[in-house]
Amino acid sequence: MTNVNPTLTNSLLYLDGICVSFDGYKALRGLSLVLAPGEMRAIIGPNGAGKTTMMDIITGKTKPDEGDVYFGGTHDLSTMDEASIAELGIGRKFQKPTVFESHTVEDNILLALKAPRSPLANLFNRTGPEQKTRIEEVLTTTRLKDHRHRLAANLSHGQKQWLEIGMLLAQDPKLLLVDEPVAGMTDAETVTTAELLREIARDHSVVVVEHDMTFVRDLDVKVTVLHEGSVLAEGALDHVSSDPRVIEVYLGR
C-alpha cells in the first residue's frame, strides 16, 4: 500500500477483489465493497450469493484466497483471528440466534460488555457500577429489562434475536454485522427490530444482511445486491429494484 488510496483511508470497511473458494466452489468472485464510517448498509441477494461468506471474511472465520480486507483504513483483517478482530471493534450477529442458553439474560450482556478479555482479568473480575449502568442501558434499549433474570434458553425466538443484538451493543463495536435479524419473527417483532437497528445505527456503522424486502424498505438505507459472489448493483432500494438484472436474478422470482 505505497500509494495513498483515498477510498481506503476514508473507509471504515474496505473489501477489494475478494475471492474465496471451497473445494473448487467459488463462493466469492471479486467482491468489492466500501463502507463509510457511520453508514448503515443493507445487503440483499439470493441464497448462495455469498452474503454469509462475506461476513465470515470480515470477522476472520474464513481467510480470503485473494483480495484485500481493511478495517478503518489500516488494519488488514485477513491476517487477524476472530478474537483480535472482535477486539478491534467488529461485532457479529449470527443468522440463527446464538446466545448463551444456560446464562441469564443479564449475564449474556455482561459477557459481551466491553472489558478486558484475558483469562486472568476475568478470573478476578468485579463488575463495577459503570458496567452495571451500561447493562441497564442495553437491557432498556433491547426491551429485555423485565426478563433480565431469566435463562436465555427460556426466551422467545424474537427475544433471543434482540438479546443477541443487545450483546453486540454491549460490545460497543464500531461496526455491527447483522445476519438476517428478522428471520422467523412476527410482523410486530419485525417492526420493533427495524426500530431497534435504526436506533443503533445512530452511533454505529451497521451492515445488515436480509431477505425480507419489507424490512429492508423499513430500514431505508443504501442497498448492495450480491449475486454469485460479487456485487450486482448498489444504491437506494428503489434504484436497485428497478435494475433489470436485479429483477432477473432476485426480485423477479
Partner: peptide, 22 residues
C-alpha cells in the same frame, strides 16, 4: 467468577464466544 461464566459460554456456543473477542 466471570472466568467461569466464559467457560460455560464456551461450552454452550464456542464460536459466539470467539466473536465476542475471547
Amino acid at each position: 467468577s466471570k472466568f467461569g461464566k466464559v467457560l460455560i459460554a464456551i461450552r454452550d456456543a464456542e464460536s459466539r464466544t470467539r466473536f465476542l473477542g475471547y
